[in-house]
Design a protein around this nucleic acid. Structure first.
Lengths: 225, 225
DNA sequence: CGAGAGGATAATGAATTCAAAATTCAAAAT
DNA sequence: ATTTTGAATTTTGAATTCATTATCCTCTCG
């Protein structure tokens, strides 16, 4: 893993149209590295080493760092470089609360704007969710759970909402928390998801909004941090 | 206006500790210029000219541009530089909807977290609002209106929420819309504000949340854009 | 007279350079 | 032995340089 972003082969370089600017590629890459934990929270950014790893000069890397700092994923220390942002338990709870509020709006708007295919997709994911619940497969359950929430946000067709939600999602991923639930909570979560799907299919925006705004409450235990 | 960011006087330079990095100062400055309309929507960013105006080299300017692009205030055109973002009427409506959702959460949390001084401050602003309403002074009315909403968000003591809200606020300012209301709507807005204040003082988070989530609906006419 | 080719000019994107600041490390002093 | 000092080294922040791409302008040809 971690190959240079630019093709090392000269021919490939000249033949391939450069899709995006380097700083955008580096930003994307760093977000992924932070989200996956390859760059750990609090870790100092070694500019020169990262440049070498990514195969770019410091200029695009620093541009990317500034952009990510604006997103909250990187902290800039005056005259002392930058490090991966450290999130507190409180910040995680805050992000959850904001995301729940956004999902509430997304639910309302999705009921008005979603097309049938999008709703069908959520339903399909819901079936998968139930499958993993029955199997007791928590890892895949959480992945699907997240996918469902994302699909509902996408179905709002509100680009601004989608973008803001995405930013928070990046942060939450960076936090690498463990969302452990006991069987009772898990059962309740499943019931809530049943309601969510039902209201979405009925396009009952108001009720779906209420559900989503409170669905995330108390789901969080805490992060290892 | 528009003096270089760095002191031109050598003595001042050496004596004063440099507070923040150039890119941060430039970002701040550009946000203000976009918010005030000094840089108009859609306007091409002339890097060299701006550098000269701000008294910095292209490096910090470009870092700032990347950061603002991430915020949505600047558009990056591949190999063609950048321009001030152009917002559509739809994006403005989207931003309003998201802000209303965030204010709803802010209201709920403010009722739990605000201290009495913060509530008193909102009440004082509310009195000012009424004053401007009676005077028919729309300009100051909107300024105070915005201040009230901001104070409620701040009173949530949810840093993540505050930050996300602030980002949207920058965009909305950049849009320079006109929020014209007829007398009937204005009267209704005042009544809503009365309710908002009443619920805040009673710390009735649920009701305040509902109010704020729907307060902004239909407030928007449109932008000159 | 207008459309298009082609070359000059300017702007962009990224690498490199350079000064200032922080960090490291070894020697000296308590 | 531990802390302190101060020079060497590294890292950072920002300016400058350089290759590439886009834009403009003129000239030719229809």
């Amino acid at each position: 893993m971690s190959e240079p972003l630019t093709a090392s082969d000269e021919t490939a370089k000249t033949l391939r149209i450069r899709a995006t600017s380097l700083h955008a590629q580096v930003s994307e890459r760093l977000r992924a590295m932070i989200g996956s934990g390859e760059l750990a929270a609090g870790e100092k950014i070694q500019e020169r080493a990262l440049c070498e790893l990514l195969g770019v000069s410091r200029t695009p890397l620093r541009e990317a760092l500034k952009a990510l700092a604006n997103e909250g994923l990187i902290e800039l220390l005056p005259n002392r470089g930058s490090r991966v942002a450290v999130f507190t338990r409180r910040q995680l709870q805050e992000a959850f609360a904001v995301m729940a509020a956004l999902e509430g709006l997304a639910g309302e708007e999705a009921c008005e704007s979603a097309n049938d295919a999008e709703i069908a997709e959520v339903e399909a994911l819901h079936q998968e969710l139930l499958e993993y619940y029955r199997e007791g497969n928590a890892g895949d359950y959480f992945a699907i759970n997240r996918a469902i929430h994302e699909r509902i946000v996408l179905a709002s067709h509100n680009e601004t909402l989608i973008e803001v939600y995405r930013g928070l999602n990046h942060r939450v991923r960076a936090m690498r928390f463990s969302m452990r639930m006991d069987p009772q909570q898990w059962r309740e979560a499943i019931e809530e998801h049943e309601s969510i799907l039902r209201h979405l299919k009925r396009r009952d925006g108001h009720e779906l909004g209420v559900l989503l705004r409170y669905h995330l409450r108390n789901k969080l235990r805490d992060a290892p941090a």
